[in-house]
Amino acid sequence: MTRRDEKSWSPYVAGALTGIVLILSVWVADKYVGASTTFVRTAGMIEQQFAPDKVKTMEYFIKEKPIVDWQTLFVAGIFIGSLFAAVMFNDFKKQAVPPMWEKRFGPSIPKRAVFAFLGGAVAMFGARLADG
């Protein structure tokens, strides 16, 4: 029994190639990859539009400056790379509600939106606490 559809590669192959990308990143650019700091910096940049003086004094934004850096471009690149692969391999699919969610919670888009939003907020708070 295999759950993999024909359009995807073996997760072992794609994973091992990703491992090589990670090695090259450390070797060539001296960067270990991560994503969640970008959400802190971006949140800081948004808050700066409304309360620049407050952001300047907040300890966490002094530690993680509200700027565009290597990781911001890395996170943007994930979007571009995935879009490119999906189009190239005819695997792009517009989807508002995931099938497994729909089966359990129904097809409502607002319902999915509310829970995905709250889930995202909780997940990021935890990720930052664990420094992941």
């Binding site: 997760p11 890395f74 690149g77 994930i78 571009i80 790379g81 692969a85 695997d91 995931p98």
Partner: peptide
């Protein structure tokens, strides 16, 4: 460094998509 970040991200995103690991399901 910004350009390195973008290139690394594109490669990573490409492989995540190819591995079929991006879905909620």
């Amino acid at each position: 460094p910004l350009l390195y970040g973008l290139i690394t991200g594109i490669a990573f995103g490409f492989l995540l998509q190819r591995g079929g690991v991006l879905r909620y399901d």
